[in-house]
Structures are given as C-alpha cells and as structure tokens.
Amino acid sequence: MTEMMPAGSFSPEQITALFIDAARLDDTELLTRFLDAGMAVDAQDSRGYTALIVAAYNGVLPATALLLERGADPNMQDAKGATALSGVAFKGHLAVAELLVSSGASLDIPSHLGRTPLMFAVMFGRQDMVRFLLAKGADPGHRDAEGLSVRDIAETHGQSHLFTQDGTTLS
C-alpha cells in the first residue's frame, strides 16, 4: 500500500505529477485515493498531459478504465494538441483504443500539426489500429497542416501497403 505525504508537503504541480505517475504505473489503488481525496480527474501537467493521456499512451488498461469511469474526458488535448487516442494510435494499443472510442473519444481530433490518430497509426505502421480506426469511421480524407493526406503520409513513411488504390481501405 502506497503511503501519501500530507498535501501541504507538495506543491500543486508535484501533486499532479504524482497523480499522473500513478496512472503511468497503473497504480489504480493510488489513483482511486487521489480521486476520492478530490483530485481533478483531468488535471494537466506543464506539458498538458492528463492521467488518462499517460495511462492510455502506456497501454495500461485498468488505469485507463478507472479514469474513464471516474469521468476523465477522452478528448482532452495536451500542449501539442494530442489526445489519448493519438498516443494510443501511435503506440498501437488496440484494447485501449477500443475502450477510448467506446467511451466517447473522437476519432479525428487533429494535433496542432493537423495530424489525426489515423495519421499516427499510419506513420508507425500500426495496421490493426488503422483497420480499427477506419472501421469506426475515421476520416481518411483529412489533411494535416502541411496538406498531406493519410495516403501521402503512408507513402512518405513506407506504409503505402496499408491502402488500396483509392487510399481509403486496407489492402
């Protein structure tokens, strides 16, 4: 059992960091204690990370589920505009992506560079994630801030095998 120091011993930034670290480490007991003590479920650190963004990115399903059950917003964006689903698409954690989408995560929220979760999945060759996002209705026609389409990104990153000639379906 993790012992918590009195709240006066830590700055608000340190408390948020400890909360987010608990999510990263999948410490659902500590997350529950923070939340029961009044921690804002969508508290953000200096990079805009929330516990949900970090838990999802690290593929920790129990912490992700707990945070969503406790009201975490699956569409919060970090300082670069990335959502939890963006990080999951990049890393390829399909079970976490399924949970996020079933909990209301939007499929096409672009980062500040205009990149959507589908684009991140394509960039990193996450074929199962690409299939999942397309099946759920992700927009393959979206263009990023440089004007690149999903198909353009696939070609640039050596992933053109993910798409058929029309650029919208997996081969």
Results as ranks from 00 to 15, higher is better:
residue 67 L to N: 03
residue 139 D to L: 05
residue 101 V to E: 07
residue 34 F to G: 06
residue 89 A to Y: 04
residue 150 V to T: 14
residue 27 D to W: 11
residue 109 I to E: 09
residue 170 L to V: 15
residue 88 V to H: 04
residue 31 L to Y: 02
residue 166 D to N: 14
residue 21 D to P: 01
residue 29 E to Q: 13
residue 107 L to F: 11
residue 35 L to K: 10
residue 44 Q to M: 14
residue 126 R to L: 04
residue 50 T to D: 05
residue 125 G to I: 08
residue 4 M to N: 06
residue 18 L to C: 10
residue 141 G to R: 14
residue 158 G to Y: 04
residue 48 G to Q: 04
residue 105 A to V: 14
residue 87 G to P: 06
residue 73 D to T: 09
residue 116 T to M: 02
residue 63 A to T: 11
residue 9 S to F: 13
residue 90 F to I: 04
residue 34 F to A: 06
residue 99 L to M: 13
residue 46 S to Y: 05
residue 73 D to I: 11
residue 63 A to H: 09
residue 61 L to F: 14
residue 100 L to M: 11
residue 23 A to T: 09
residue 98 E to V: 14
residue 86 S to I: 04
residue 74 P to V: 15
residue 93 H to C: 07
residue 14 Q to G: 11
residue 159 Q to R: 15
residue 148 L to F: 07
residue 14 Q to D: 12
residue 171 S to R: 15
residue 88 V to C: 04
residue 28 T to C: 00
residue 33 R to W: 02
residue 113 L to W: 02
residue 14 Q to M: 13
residue 62 P to W: 12
residue 20 I to C: 01
residue 148 L to I: 01
residue 108 D to K: 07
residue 74 P to G: 07
residue 150 V to K: 03
residue 114 G to L: 01
residue 44 Q to D: 02
residue 101 V to G: 03
residue 91 K to N: 15
residue 5 M to C: 01
residue 48 G to Y: 08
residue 132 F to P: 12
residue 31 L to K: 08
residue 126 R to P: 06
residue 148 L to V: 02
residue 47 R to S: 13
residue 17 A to L: 13
residue 160 S to R: 13
residue 61 L to M: 13
residue 96 V to M: 04
residue 53 I to W: 04
residue 58 N to G: 09
residue 3 E to R: 10
residue 12 P to M: 12
residue 76 M to D: 06
residue 124 F to P: 01
residue 141 G to E: 12
residue 123 M to C: 03
residue 20 I to L: 01
residue 75 N to A: 10
residue 65 A to K: 15
residue 73 D to A: 07
residue 19 F to E: 06
residue 93 H to M: 08
residue 111 S to M: 03
residue 87 G to R: 01
